[in-house]
Every structure is written in C-alpha cells, then in structure tokens.
Amino acid sequence: MSKVQKTVLILAALVALVIGLTVYKVLMVDRGPNQAELLDAGIVLLPQPREVPDVTLVDQDGQPVAMDELDGRWRLLFFGYTFCPDICPATLAELRQLRGMLPEQARDALQPVLVSVDPNRDTPEQLKRYLGFFGPEFVGLTGELDAIQTLANSVGIPFIPADTSQENYTVDHSGNLVIIGPDGRQRGFIRAPLNNEKLAEQLPALIGSEG
C-alpha cells in the first residue's frame, strides 16, 4: 500500500469517527433528560402527559385562573396552606432556594404555585401577604373547596379537608409537587422531601428538553 493510500485511509477513518461522534451526540440530545438521573432527583415523569380539569380558581390578586388554560411556562404546584405549621413554610423556603440555584433561563421558565387546601382561611389577601415572604414570583390560588379537591384528585395529590369548626385546625396534605408543562398538562411529580442539589442539576435538562 502506497503512502498516499495510507493517508487516504487515515483521513477516511477520521471522517468516520467525527461523523459517528456527531450522530451519537444528536441521538443523546434527542433522548432528552436521563430518566435514571431524574428519578434519583425525585422527579417522576408520567408515561403520557395528563390533562388538568377545567376548574377556575382565584389568584392572590383576586383574578380568576382557569387551570386548563395554563400554558407558556413550567409550573410546580404545591398543595398546602398558609396556616400550616411545618411542611408548607419549609417547602416554600426550599422552592425559593431552588430557584436561586437554577440558571437564569430555567429560573425564568419555572413558576412555583401554592394551591390552598384551606380556602376557608386562605383568602387572596392572605395568600398575597404570606407569599410575599418567599418572593414575587410565587403565585397563590384559592377558591371553592370542591374545585380545589377536583384539581388535587385529578393530579394525584388528594388531601383531607379539615373540620373548620375546630379552633386552630390543621389540614392533612402531601408534600409532593406537581409538574405542569408549558402546554398546560401534567408531566409528573417531584417527591418530597426535596433534594435541591439534585433538582438544580436535573430541572434545567427537563425544562430545556422542550425549550
């Protein structure tokens, strides 16, 4: 084999290697976020996105919000209440911390939402005062108990309504978060307790897979 032929073969091998690496990179991007790493971070995606019910709630500014019309951003729904003694303030503080750990693009694309499981006490005004401690990007929703229960049951986060006749009553509820995609459909859950270090690594990949 001549020197020229050897050179041609070497160049051909290099070209094939470059093409192979490019194809591999494209395939890996197309696969999206690593499912095992998402699970390790507590992120559980549904096999298929799930529609949310067409209930209408009220935000902290007193404006109606149709849940089946939410779109344009990723949202993390947390079903809690402002008089909660432990889980709720801790979770909202963790969400505030998590937002600060995300890169700007992911942070801007993600909105935390507190859906009250205690509409008896959580008026829009109360939600606004309470969420002011966590940041202006936090949204609060309240409304009729039946509508809130319909939403909670539909997204797999049921709660037990409280006996509001009791003084200083509490509400039994979950600490899990509901992931709503930019198309307004439920994509999955984030399991409690939150692991902010791992979530900060995985959420940008999840959000970026549909940017």
Rank of each mutant, 00 (worst) to 15 (best):
L38C: 01
L38R: 08
L38W: 00
L38G: 07
L39D: 09
L39G: 11
L39E: 13
L39C: 02
D40H: 12
G42W: 05
G42H: 07
G42T: 06
G42M: 10
G42D: 04
I43E: 11
I43S: 04
V44W: 01
V44G: 05
L45A: 03
L45N: 06
L46M: 05
P47R: 02
P47A: 02
P47Y: 01
P47L: 00
Q48V: 14
Q48K: 14
P49F: 07
R50I: 08
R50H: 15
E51S: 14
V52T: 15
V52I: 09
V52D: 10
P53V: 12
D54W: 00
D54V: 02
D54Q: 12
D54R: 12
V55A: 10
T56H: 09
T56A: 13
L57C: 09
L57A: 02
L57G: 10
V58R: 07
D59K: 03
D59A: 06
D59R: 06
Q60C: 01
Q60P: 03
Q60E: 14
Q60Y: 06
Q60K: 10
Q60M: 08
D61V: 00
G62A: 05
G62P: 03
Q63L: 14
P64G: 00
P64A: 02
P64Y: 05
P64D: 02
V65C: 08
V65F: 04
V65K: 06
A66K: 14
A66M: 05
A66I: 01
M67L: 15
M67W: 09
M67Y: 01
D68K: 14
D68E: 12
D68R: 12
L70I: 12
L70H: 09
L70P: 09
L70M: 13
D71A: 15
D71F: 10
D71H: 14
R73W: 08
R73H: 15
R73V: 10
R73G: 01
W74S: 04
R75V: 06
R75A: 12
R75H: 13
R75N: 05
L76K: 04
L77Y: 15
F78N: 09
F78E: 03
F79K: 09
F79Y: 12
F79V: 05
G80Q: 01
G80W: 03
Y81P: 06
Y81I: 04
Y81H: 04
Y81D: 07
T82S: 12
T82M: 13
T82C: 13
T82A: 13
T82Y: 12
T82K: 11
F83P: 01
C84M: 03
P85M: 10
D86N: 13
D86T: 13
D86E: 15
D86G: 10
I87G: 07
I87T: 13
I87Q: 13
C88A: 01
P89V: 07
P89D: 04
P89Q: 07
A90Y: 05
T91C: 02
T91A: 05
L92Y: 07
A93F: 11
A93H: 07
A93C: 03
A93R: 07
E94Q: 15
E94I: 00
E94Y: 05
L95Y: 00
L95N: 11
R96G: 14
R96I: 02
R96V: 04
R96L: 08
